[in-house]
Design a protein around this nucleic acid. Structure first.
Length: 584
DNA sequence: GCCGTTTTCGGCCCGACTGTTTTCAGTCG
């Protein structure tokens, strides 16, 4: 699967072309990159099967880009791009990352001052050479200095598991401030938008929307920029303000009047690509869509804007949930009224992956069960680590049997069904980490790779396929092994993994730990095409982790999953048909 | 460079904020 690699290449080319102030091409390359990223199919496979004509069937890819892709797949590079890169100063794409700098200014800096790299820029600022330049001044020099500082401090994206609680905090603080200053603000309308509302696995910045009449808007802005955690105010206006928090996260706040609230919510939720498509739909229907509303093109009369639902409705579309708004075909599906009915939090009836004090969990078996029952779950599986996981205090056979005894005892006290499970290591040869006579006694076997991450693709694929063919394996845990921002997914052929899983009726886990979110949305989409079922699991290591399900659920929704696709939405009696050992 | 219920040529989302202008260009999302 080289989709990501090719998309990155096109993004880079788009940046260079932008720097060279070539018109429109950057947009075309970015669009192509985005389509390839979200394809859900292996582009190399498409090319092998249907050649260039297969490639041009993908929206955004025409004759020329198809040729580039073919050349890249066959030779590992594109001659034209190599020449392009030679001509562009190597630091230009990095300079594009600095807030406040775009193609024009970078060109100007390069021509007038010979600034080609980030360190050139720093030196120019220190020597105060910028302010003498046309279009720059005292202030831009200072702002650029700060922007560089921030870029160097943190240009990494924030994990969903960090961003969501942080946004909740900021929003509550903002609500409290607003409440003390004015009674005219509808506090329930202060919510997060942007990639956070779409529950993307990582977040660039936090976007917040509020509703207020014009004369109240500035008050909301005042509250916002004076929040205690704000370190720097980037900009402040009556509809838009941006700040940076002490810990480095950027937050934008938009304030709009009630008649535009729905339009603004739609617009600022994005994604950008979804919005561009949506505006095209508007144009084709004789409308104009902006963050202020949906208007008739001719008369300029507003026909929707108050609520998000109304906007989609007036455009002839079914309401599209935020998690689907990635321009992955959701607009066409909405037009045909063929959107999936996404799985919801209320559908979840159990959690099939959690740890206790027996291995590396922080809470006791009893505490975990208590809390899970309080959640209203119908069943849980206790899945401590198997014996090879020495670092995680994996259970030997004796200790596992002791846990079974305690589960039997607790089962008499609690209403919730407690399944005897294990997160069993998939060993290097693909075998499982307990003997068969133990595996067959377990209600649920969750198989996982915890070692040998550096295996070559073929060996890793064989290893996992062997495990999937083992009749005692039920669920493949965190199938890609990635750790967000820390470790890439291991090299494995997912086509073969999904094929083997489907052939043997195995379930794919969507691990909800914020650092994992594995499978991710793209792989979920691909896995679904193999007819696979999924389970959303918390992989809790403490009772406080049980709520992490919201993150995994988000990825499931981003992967277009319905209730039916997710086995832990099933009643216990139906779950028994999925995992046959439960009948024993 | 892509694409077509206006088009095979001529469009390509749209508006806010800032800093530098003295009416707007550049950048951002």
């Amino acid at each position: 699967m080289r989709n990501r690699e090719i998309a990155e290449l096109f993004y880079e080319v788009a940046d260079i072309l932008e720097y060279q102030q070539v018109e429109w091409k950057p947009r075309a390359y970015r669009k192509a990159a985005q389509m390839i990223e979200n394809l859900g199919e292996d582009i190399e496979k498409i090319y092998t099967k249907d050649g260039k004509s297969g490639l041009t069937k993908i929206p955004g890819i025409g004759e020329s880009i198809a040729n580039h892709i073919a050349e890249y797949l066959e030779t590992g590079e594109v001659e034209k791009f190599e020449k392009l890169k030679e001509k562009a100063p190597s630091g230009a794409t990095e300079l594009m990352e600095i807030r406040g700098l775009g193609a024009k200014k970078i060109k100007n800096l390069s021509d007038a001052l010979g600034v080609r790299t980030l360190s050139d820029l720093k030196n120019a600022i220190i020597a105060h050479r910028l302010k003498r330049l046309e279009g720059f001044g005292e202030k831009s020099e200072k702002n650029l200095a700060r922007a560089i500082e921030q870029y160097e401090k943190s240009h990494a994206r924030l994990a969903l598991g960090k961003a969501l609680p942080l946004a909740d905090e900021v929003i509550s603080a903002l609500k409290a401030q607003c409440e003390s200053r004015t009674s005219k603000i509808d506090l329930s309308k202060i919510i997060c938008t942007g990639s956070l509302r779409r529950l993307k696995e990582t977040i660039g910045d936090i976007d917040i929307l509020a509703e207020a009449e014009k004369e109240e808007a500035l008050k909301v802005m005042d509250c916002f920029v004076s929040l205690p955690d704000v370190e720097q105010v980037i900009l402040k206006g009556s509809t838009k303000s941006s700040v940076i928090l002490r810990e480095g996260t950027a937050i934008d706040l938009r304030v709009v009047p009630p008649e535009s609230y729905g339009a603004a919510l739609q617009y600022f939720t994005g994604s950008k690509e979804h919005n561009i498509e949506l505006r095209n739909v508007a144009i084709k229907n004789g409308y104009k869509l902006s963050e202020y509303g949906l208007y008739l093109k001719e008369s300029g009369k507003q026909i929707a804007g108050n609520s998000e639902a109304e906007i989609y409705e007036k455009l002839g579309l079914a309401y599209i949930p935020p998690e689907l708004r990635e321009n992955r075909g959701e607009i066409k599906a909405a037009a045909r009224n063929a959107l999936p009915k996404l799985v919801e939090a209320g559908n979840l009836r159990g959690d099939l992956h959690m740890h206790t004090e027996y291995s590396e969990g922080k809470d006791s078996l009893k505490t975990m069960i208590e809390k899970a029952e309080a959640f209203g779950y119908e069943y849980i599986a206790v899945t401590d680590h198997s014996r090879s996981q020495k670092v995680a205090n994996g259970l030997d056979v004796e200790k596992l049997k002791a846990q079974w005894k305690e589960i039997d005892k607790l089962s008499k006290i609690f209403r919730i069904k407690i399944l005897k499970g294990s997160e069993v290591d998939i060993l290097k040869d693909g075998s499982l980490d307990y003997p068969d006579e133990i595996l067959k006694e377990l209600d649920i076997v969750v198989g996982a790779v915890h070692s040998g991450f550096a295996f070559l693709e073929r060996r890793m694929t064989e290893r996992i396929v062997t495990a999937l063919e083992n009749k005692y394996l039920d669920i493949l845990a965190h199938p890609s092994g990635r750790l967000l921002g820390k470790r890439e997914a291991y090299a494995v052929n997912f086509e073969k993994v999904f094929e083997a899983a489907a052939a043997n009726g195995r379930v794919m886990e969507i691990n909800s730990q914020p650092s994992r979110l594995d499978l991710n949305d793209e792989l979920i989409l691909r896995a679904k095409t193999f007819g696979l079922k999924f389970c959303i699991s918390s992989d809790s290591h403490a009772v406080s982790d049980l709520t992490s399900m919201r993150y995994g659920l988000g990825q499931a929704r981003r992967g277009w999953l319905e209730k039916e696709d997710v086995v832990n939405t099933y009643s216990y009696s139906r779950l028994k048909q999925v995992f046959k050992k439960l009948n024993a």
